[in-house]
Design a protein around this nucleic acid. Sequence first.
RNA 1: GGUUCUGUAGCUCAGCUGGUAGAGCAAAUGACUCUUAAUCAUUGGGUCCAGGGUUCGAAUCCCUGCGGGACCA
Length: 505
Amino acid sequence: MQATLSEQEVIRREKLVELRSLGIDPYPAPSYKITHTAVQIKQGYSEETKEEYKEISLAGRIMSRRDMGKANFAVLQDETGTIQIYIKRDEICPGEDKSMFDTVWKKLLDLGDIIGIKGYGFITKTGETSVHVESFTLLTKALHPLPSVKEKDGEVFNEVTDLEFKYRQRYADLIVNPSVRDTFTRITKMKNAIRTFLNDRGGLEVDTPVLQSIPGGALARPFITHHNALDIPLYLRIANELYLKRLIVGGFPWVYEFSRNFRNEGMDRTHNPEFTILEFYVAYKDYLWMMDTTEKMLEETAIATNGVSTSVIDGVEIDFKAPYKRISIYDAIHEHTGYDISQMDEAGLRDVCKALHIQVDATMGKGKLVDEIFGGKCEKHYVQPTFIIDYPVEMSPLTKKHREKEGLVERFELIINGKEIANAYSELNDPIDQRERFEEQLKNMERGDDEAMFIDNDFLRALEYGMPPTAGIGIGIERLAMLLTGNVSIQDVLFFPQMRPENVA
RNA sequence: GGUUCUGUAGCUCAGCUGGUAGAGCAAAUGACUCUUAAUCAUUGGGUCCAGGGUUCGAAUCCCUGCGGGACCA
């Protein structure tokens, strides 16, 4: 696979051979006992507590070395951070044979190698808490040289900034850039906070099919694959909505799923072909309840993730503290374009689009036109969390008709920093109405809209059994993660963003 | 998909209007028993993304392709 090895890679392979010839296994099998982490020692060690740090062991990667001849300093990095270690020749090798220090430690170990050390805590003359090494064990030899990043007083030198390197070799990015690790641990905290919020209220986390014979629940182009045994096409899900609603029909009052979805569309800094939407559905609730719940959940989630209800992205401070502003989509459009489109037909909307220089095509129906106007002229103005509510029925095929406003549905989108973060509604549970909406979608499909929905007869049958009034929501997890961690690119909140395959020559 | 920027050592980058490659870190060898971007000395390391073209001569100019970023649809 690898055509040629660099000089440094060749040297490391030679060291591997030499280690083995000395009887040292560069990839030993036994567990290594760890008593402390780097941060525990740095935070816990003091003159008063030194007795507790007399016999400690930790393991990590060698990140830098300062060779003073018969004594060396090195920096060891574990999952919590870094700590300086101090190693003296005559302590490691008290007898005549100095090879463990002179050969193994100084010559055969490299930056990036993973070692275990036993020793005791102490503070250097310059005041840095360190570990005095009494013995060390090679735990894993690294054959690939690590980028040599240095740091002083918080300033980073030779930082790896090449995005291609970071995304393709995330493992190396994680080793070398502590802030990347921090981003991802905060994302996990964020997801845990959401789970806690939902579980505490009776939510049941469930799994539903990723492979679907009818890709439903959203307007998007699916990936298609083929099942050999059944000899049928299958689609990777674009949403899990219709399955979660089936479970509401089945009697669960509150279900949720972090749904990995797949959409065969363009990629940019807010779109990856696979991404996660948290969807949850709650029986006997409506979209007004859902707004109250969502803002509460996001406030708690922000605090769990960042310690405060705010985060800063692109120099803008976002405050997730509830409650959020609510405005109808027609009022939003009126406010930002001056046009009152609430009573307009399709022709009128086309005229408005023309006047606003919004490109439209013949396949677009009334709903899509409203969507274009809002997306093009209004969305960007909503920086702090804002619920946009009461959408026209044409763009919401799974949403219950508004309880009082003709032609509208009970739906909201949550806009933060000018982008859609969540989409929710009082779920349509009238099976006859639902069938008509699907048939409407079929017409859009015939008109050339390749994102229109298929008719899912099994889902309609489920509705015919009776689905209680239900509120449902989908929240873009990566987008929320971007907001809460201050990253502007989806690639920075996915461990392994989609990339073109590398050409391995 | 369009426009534009970009690709040089393991990493970060320099290389002017064309004369066939340079620094720091990393690596190797040596010195140094409290250093911390350790220091000092010596040395090695490159299909300059790929393929064409222009030219006596291309990392450099032109074209095509590939990878990556940004903006737009």
